[in-house]
Simulated scan of single mutants.
Amino acid sequence: MADITARLGWRHLRAAPTAHIRHQRRGRLIHEGPGLSFWFRALTAALSEVPVDDRELAMSFHARTSDFQDVGVQATVTYRIHDPATAAARLDFSVDPDTGAWRGTPLEQIANLLTETAQQHALDVLARTSLASALADGVAAVRDRIGAGFADEPRLPATGIEVVAVRVVAIRPEPEVERALRTPAREQIQQEADRATYERRAVAVERERAIAENELASKIELARREEQLVEQNGTNARRRAEESAAADAVKADAEASRTVRLARAEAEAAQQVGAARAEAQAAWLRVHADVDPVTLHALAVTRLAENLPRIESLTLSPDVVTSALARLAGAPGAGGTAAGA
Rank of each mutant, 00 (worst) to 15 (best):
A2H: 01
A2I: 05
D3G: 03
G9M: 05
H12E: 13
A16M: 08
A16D: 15
A16I: 02
P17C: 00
P17W: 00
H20E: 04
H20A: 03
R26Y: 15
G27C: 06
R28H: 15
L29N: 12
H31W: 08
L36C: 13
L36A: 05
L36R: 12
W39Q: 06
A46Q: 14
S48I: 00
V50H: 01
P51A: 11
T65S: 03
S66V: 09
D67M: 04
Q69T: 14
V71S: 03
G72K: 08
G72C: 06
T76I: 11
R80D: 02
D83Y: 00
A87V: 02
A87W: 01
L91M: 14
L91D: 04
F93W: 03
V95H: 00
V95L: 07
D96W: 07
A101Y: 13
P106M: 03
E108V: 09
I110T: 01
T115F: 06
A122M: 01
L126W: 01
A127N: 08
A127E: 05
T129S: 09
A132I: 11
L135M: 04
A136C: 02
G138S: 04
A141T: 09
V142S: 03
R143G: 10
D144K: 00
I146K: 03
I146T: 04
A148F: 09
A151Q: 12
R155M: 04
R155C: 00
L156D: 00
P157V: 06
E162H: 09
V164Y: 01
A165L: 02
A165V: 01
R167D: 11
I171P: 00
P175T: 02
P175S: 06
Q190C: 01
Q191I: 12
T197P: 03
T197E: 13
Y198S: 09
Y198V: 13
E199I: 04
R200E: 12
A202K: 11
V205I: 14
E208W: 05
I211K: 10
N214H: 05
S218R: 15
S218C: 03
S218Q: 14
I220G: 04
E226N: 07
E226Q: 10
V230L: 14
E231T: 10
Q232D: 11
N233H: 10
N236A: 14
R238F: 10
R239E: 12
R240L: 15
E243G: 07
A247L: 12
A249R: 15
K251H: 13
A254K: 10
A254G: 08
A256H: 15
A256T: 09
S257E: 15
R258M: 11
T259C: 04
V260D: 13
A263E: 13
A265D: 14
E266W: 08
A267I: 08
A267G: 09
A267F: 07
A270D: 12
Q272K: 15
A275F: 07
A278R: 10
A280H: 02
Q281R: 15
A283L: 12
W284D: 08
W284G: 07
L285Y: 09
L285P: 01
R286C: 04
D292Q: 03
L299D: 06
T302K: 07
A305G: 08
A305D: 06
R310P: 12
S317C: 07
D319I: 08
D319F: 10
S323P: 02
R327P: 03
A329L: 14
